[in-house]
Amino acid sequence: MAETATVPTYRRTGGIGRLLERYPFLPALVIVAALLLLNGFFSPNSLTLRALTGLLSTYMALILLAIAQTYVVYAGDIDLSAGAILSLVNVAIVVLMERWGGGAGAVFLALAIGLLLGLACGLVNGLVVAALRLQAIVATFATSIFFTGFALYVLPVAGTPAPALFWRTYGGRLFGVPFVFYILAALVILVAVMSRTRLVTQLLAVGDDQQAAYQTGLPVITTRIKGYVLCGLFSALAAFCITGDTASGDPLVGGKMTLYSVAAVVLGGSALSGGWGTVVGSLLGALTIGLINSVVFFMGTPSEWQNFVQGLAILLVLMAGVLAGRRARS
């Protein structure tokens, strides 16, 4: 991908090509809009504020996990332990909140420790992949087994409830607006600020051409480690959302979400080979997965066929995401 990201292309492209180059997440946006329309067509009720709030609070965790994954993918790495980090932070904060009585102070302290835990897990991943130079796919699979074991140690079986204060806030309203919309707004601002930081530029440079980045004097190893740390932090934020949504702890809750987070990143048009992508695309990619699931449900698909239709639809939009991303880069 050496010729792609940082080098501006002055070749005259068609209108669509230029648009894609400026807004690479456009195809994902179109897909999300189309899926929303389909949803409304099959079930008008699914476009009410109430239904959209429900959708958002269910998929906010996946959105955050997809964003977490994006930062490592920027640098050409991958994190197969993101879901395991989510599980670990989920059980850790639930157990701590319960042990400390479930008051506001307990909740904030537990969340702070959850963030630290996510940071530590990300640091471990970064060290084994970037500093010890193990291959990212297998090394983060190994750490995911370790993190899952740790989660099982903290809470052997699913079920400890989160304090009411926590999930009531997450599922409730603030000044009449559902709380998840504040999360979404804060997230968008956070991500917009992040995208202007030197770190993100460095991650993209490393992913674009590691050797060139090194020769330009970039601290390649430190940058990749920071990418994994960011991934750990956002995985912890994802854990907060899943705790708010399910209101309980489950040591295996994130296992299935890892591959979905990778899929969401690809749906958003980012290149898995690194050096090119957008966080907004990943956010839309995660929403796409959620909306596909709900369209398939509202279409009245027989229950035994739902997984198959979802799988097929996701495969097709994955392909579309790759093709559109390539079009934008060429």
């Binding site: 190994a142 750490t143 370790f146 993190f147 074991g149």
Partner: peptide
């Protein structure tokens, strides 16, 4: 839990 932690660490 211990088994999985040992397994993951040994793989690494």
């Amino acid at each position: 839990s211990g088994r999985q932690m040992v397994f993951g660490a040994t793989l690494l």
